[in-house]
């Protein structure tokens, strides 16, 4: 087993001629929680989609767990989209059942635990859930899988502080960092900082910094937000 769960080598991604990522290379270490930070449109979501195998690089290569990232790695990657991807006509319980049928590594017992931790009503239809509870349900689905790589695109965006807190707590409780790696993008940097190991800052399709959070504090005496401002301002 390589010490890196995912690797980008010289990856360029263009959408209709527009460059979203420009010659990006990095290795994602196993068993860590790594965050992608950067302004809107900097390429964070593109990096996550490439890692999930949902889009393909225009140039270069992306490997996950030693395999080329493509549709077929979906069994090894749990991907939480920033979009609303739940079926509105399902109840919470049906959504869980549906996902359990979809993914071989889905742990229904864990899903039940997270369900009660999140205080979600299993009989409620997704359509009738508040935005916060839909956010909780999405997290539940991602955390219930024993996938070696968990990708989360803006898991906290647009949610109130109570929901954000419950999501962060559930990450600490239900992730298994002996077996799993988390790669997420976020704007709520100061909130997730205590749970991060590494941070990668992205701007205009390029990676401008990658470092350990504790190292940033030790070396520069800066919080992550300050470090971000510095690296992104250069």
């Amino acid at each position: 087993m390589s010490e890196h769960i995912a690797s980008f080598s010289n990856v360029t991604k263009k959408y209709l001629g527009q460059i979203a990522l420009n010659n990006v290379s990095f290795d994602l270490p196993r068993g860590k929680i790594t965050a992608l930070v950067g302004p809107n449109g900097s390429g964070k979501s593109t990096i996550l989609k490439l890692t999930a195998g949902l889009v393909h690089p225009s140039q270069g290569s992306v490997t996950v767990n030693g395999k080329t990232a493509e549709r077929r790695i979906a069994g090894e990657v749990a991907y939480l989209s920033e979009l609303d991807v739940l079926y509105p006509f399902f109840t919470v319980a049906e959504t869980i059942k549906f996902n359990a049928g979809l993914f071989a590594d889905f742990d229904e017992q864990k899903a039940q635990e997270i369900l009660s931790f999140m205080q979600l009503d299993p009989s409620k239809k997704v359509r009738h859930l508040s935005k916060g509870n839909r956010g909780r349900l999405k997290i539940l689905l991602a955390l219930s899988r024993r996938a070696p790589l968990v990708l989360m695109d803006e898991p906290l965006a647009g949610l109130d502080p109570v929901v954000r807190d419950s999501i962060i707590k559930s990450m600490i409780s239900y992730l298994d960092l002996q077996e799993q790696t988390v790669f997420l993008s976020t704007h709520e940097v100061s909130e997730v900082e205590p749970v991060l190991d590494l941070v990668i800052s992205v701007r205009e399709g390029q990676i401008i910094g990658m470092d350990e959070v504790d190292h940033i504090r030790e070396q520069y005496g800066l919080s992550l937000v300050e470090w971000m401002k510095e690296t992104l301002a250069k």
């Binding site: 600490i172 960092l177 749970v195 190991d197």
Partner: peptide, 17 residues
């Protein structure tokens, strides 16, 4: 490690350290 991580709200890797 996990209990302590929850109590302090930090990453279990940090507590391990």
């Amino acid at each position: 490690v996990r209990e302590m991580a929850l109590q302090t709200g930090v990453n279990p890797n940090t507590i391990q350290r």
